[in-house]
């Protein structure tokens, strides 16, 4: 329970923000948290809180597997640093690039293929898989 005490403020915030399906478990000196945040802002807040409680997230004692609520058809913003986001034929960087989405461009979610790869469609009609880390539900 020690880790739940350490991250009490974070767990409290997750509850307050109404993270759906919030699940918490402690195993082998790691606290596992999963659930779905209502918005990208909530998601960012939770991560900022993690970074505050455990400076630089250096302890490696928290697995915060939180995603952001996004249904098929949701608008997603491309959040690369400045470069284009590759859209690929398959959910892998080994797969061929079938299109590109610009930094800050808005694309449409087709399906959440898995935690790491989402199928998206651009306004130009290009469709394929992009790395979910660079896509933020609007």
């Amino acid at each position: 329970m020690a880790l739940q005490t350490k991250y009490a403020e974070l767990l409290q915030a997750a509850n307050t923000l109404g993270v759906a399906g919030l699940a918490v478990a402690e195993k082998d000196n790691t606290l596992h948290i999963s659930g779905t945040a209502k918005s990208t802002a909530d998601y960012d807040n939770l991560w900022a809180l993690y970074n505050k409680i455990d400076p630089n997230m250096a302890s490696g004692d928290l697995m915060m597997n939180i995603d952001v609520k996004a249904e098929a058809g949701a608008r997603l913003k491309v959040t690369t640093d400045s470069t284009n986001l590759n859209i690929r034929s398959q959910p892998s960087t080994e797969a061929s690039v079938v299109g590109k989405a610009a930094h800050n461009e808005i694309v449409t979610l087709v399906e959440k293929t898995d935690d790491s790869w989402w199928k998206i469609r651009t306004t130009n009609g290009e469709e394929g898989y992009a790395y979910a880390q660079y896509l933020s539900p609007e």
């Binding site: 997230m57 490696g60 697995m63 597997n65 935690d115 979910a132 880390q133």
Partner: peptide, 14 residues
């Protein structure tokens, strides 16, 4: 860290 958590991979960042 966000990416590792999405992939559900325990990470040693020491």
């Amino acid at each position: 860290m966000q990416m590792m958590a999405s992939a559900k991979v325990q990470t040693d960042v020491s």
